[in-house]
Amino acid sequence: MKKYFIFLVLVVLLGVVLNSFLNSYIQAIFISFMINAVMALSLNFITGLADQFSLGHAGLMAIGAYTSAVLNKEFFNDQWIMIPVGVLCGGFLAAVAGYLLSLPSFRLKGDYIAIVTLGLAEIVRILLLNWKHVGGPRGYNAITKFPDFFLSYGFAVLLLFITFMTMYRLKISWFGRNLWAINEDDIAAEVMGLEIAKTKRYAFTISSFFAGLGGGFYSHHLGYISPGSFGFIISVQILIIAVLGGLGSLSGSILAAAILTFLPELLRSVQTGSLDLRMIIYPILLILMMILRPQGLFGRKEIYEFLSEKWKTKLGIQL
């Protein structure tokens, strides 16, 4: 219990500092960091732990975002108190989409899920472009926002915390072991009595759920979304975060989300003209990393596993 209390105090302190000493620009960056972390965790769960490549997380994010935004504006009378409900609904709808998608995809081996998810993102984008009621290509405006930063911040921290804890607990449980065993040798895993397709389906549905949550909150954070906010590039950006942190390392994803959210903002001053240099740097980073350090920063391990024994006991971490 003690460590959760310390964590809470730290979070509140950071919130106070952000709220009273820093401007809204930096506050917004903090929130986007947490959304990026949720998205990266979601992708890491399916790609890192279950070894299934998803290229459509932006599509799942879009489902969550539009669901939550539309629900809040059209049905919940624009009340910020209902935002969590909307976000949750977004998560559920994304999970349903993910589940339906996973039905055909895991029937055979291969990287079909990569293409199928890519297709999902594309189909979602096209449907949204053609859906006049939510603005089509112009986007959906004036989405309900939290009235002040503290609420928004609190919700983001809660979201990230829940995402991380869920995935972490699953990673170190029987489910995580099943996923790992499938990665190692699916035939042997099957002979042990494990239903492979079903296990992968669960993993993908869970991942989709959190992608939906992340997307839902994203819409309320920005207050404006359009089909263009969920292009292929976003999927790639999420992928880069997960890869940098280490596929399979959940805490690594959070750290990488921090690095890749704050660093570009720092570099913003050196950017030239209209050109988005990130889209050159990211792929180069990806390729170099795959050749030189494919396991990312932390590989499959969590950050604390690199601490000395003394610190582990001090922090009350037991394996």
């Binding site: 072991r177 790992w180 065993a181 190692e184 040798d185 035939i187 042997a188 895993a189």
Partner: peptide
């Protein structure tokens, strides 16, 4: 016949 363990577990 050819051993199939989960080698990195």
């Amino acid at each position: 016949q050819n051993i199939r363990l989960f080698r990195s577990l």
